[in-house]
Design a protein around this nucleic acid. Sequence first.
DNA 1: CGTCGAATTGATGTCATTCAACTACAGTGG
DNA 2: CCACTGTAGTTGAATGACATCAATTCGACG
Lengths: 193, 193
Amino acid sequence: MYFLEYLQRNLSVSKEDVERLKPYLTEKKYEKGSYLLREGEVCEYIFYVNHGLVKMYAIDEFGKEHIIQFAPEAWFISDRASIYKKEKSKYFIEALEDSSIMLISEQFIAKALEISAEYRSHNEHLLQNHILQLQNRIHLLLCASLEQRYLSFMELYPELTLKVPQWMIASYLGVAPESLSRIRKELKNKGQS
Amino acid sequence: MYFLEYLQRNLSVSKEDVERLKPYLTEKKYEKGSYLLREGEVCEYIFYVNHGLVKMYAIDEFGKEHIIQFAPEAWFISDRASIYKKEKSKYFIEALEDSSIMLISEQFIAKALEISAEYRSHNEHLLQNHILQLQNRIHLLLCASLEQRYLSFMELYPELTLKVPQWMIASYLGVAPESLSRIRKELKNKGQS
DNA sequence: CGTCGAATTGATGTCATTCAACTACAGTGG
DNA sequence: CCACTGTAGTTGAATGACATCAATTCGACG
């Protein structure tokens, strides 16, 4: 159970505590193409990717997909808006590969916050990090050229640059796949000259 | 002291606790056009707007301003990335009107977290809300047309639609002021017909 | 009334999108 | 083993949306 390893490594949670928390966790396998969350459902879990790869995306009024986030191994992903406000989600979360996912329920979080001061600060750390991520994304969308955004994508997700199809990266960056293709060509030429 | 009112109203913090926390707070007046934070400085505070109006923005490589957030009365604003990681900020925070700002130091937050379980959940609430805001912004930037973004700006900041100059709204939306002007014209025509 | 910044408008330019054609490659079934 | 199919990626041409530039109007304020 990779998530519990993660907990023990990062938080030095005792074995007894781990045992007490286990009932609030579920490990679930998802096949490639299956959904962790669908638009219109209320999100119930924070998902931790033990193994595999997952994307979260929205569909716009024209039926176009816009990728909000990727979550490779050891990342968290979730629609916090939906969990927090018990609203229907606007997003899909879908497995891009066969994946093993840890479903972290609200009860788990409540219990863990209660038991462990360390978990409290860890939870805050996660929230803070999420904010940094999102703020950085906004910064890039507002201030940076497509080229810069692509370069910083490769920094953020180096493993993914080769693994996921290019049209998904384009969707994440907010451009048409053809445009990304042209940018990559330019970058190649720059690199040579 | 409006922020303390806010605390007492939202958190039923006792008077004694308020007294204990006061030393970690500063109220400061900022004149229109003065800076709460400059690019390159490390942000030390969460700012709470007792009264007035404030904007946070970045300057891109061409010298263009991009507004990340507005904070009217009773809003919080800060560069959490800078506070949290003790990094130099990429942002400016500037008063758009003469403003009264509460400077909330990290010591304040640490103390309050220690003293009050209620403050802990309040703090989490703030972080969650910030995430919702940011995620919504990203959603709009990726999925929505300029027109939709403008409409949802007016929903989010109804007071500001008239108060702040249009070119700032354009900057917030990520377009040229001329483009926003044309969109507004279209909206007017639609409304009539 | 004159000045300055903001907003509008029109003309033009630029960049990304769209559409379509074509290549490359993987998987399928004869 | 080879055609058949579908998906991804590239490329070119046409289109469209927004940016830019310049001129003008509007409105607040001294």
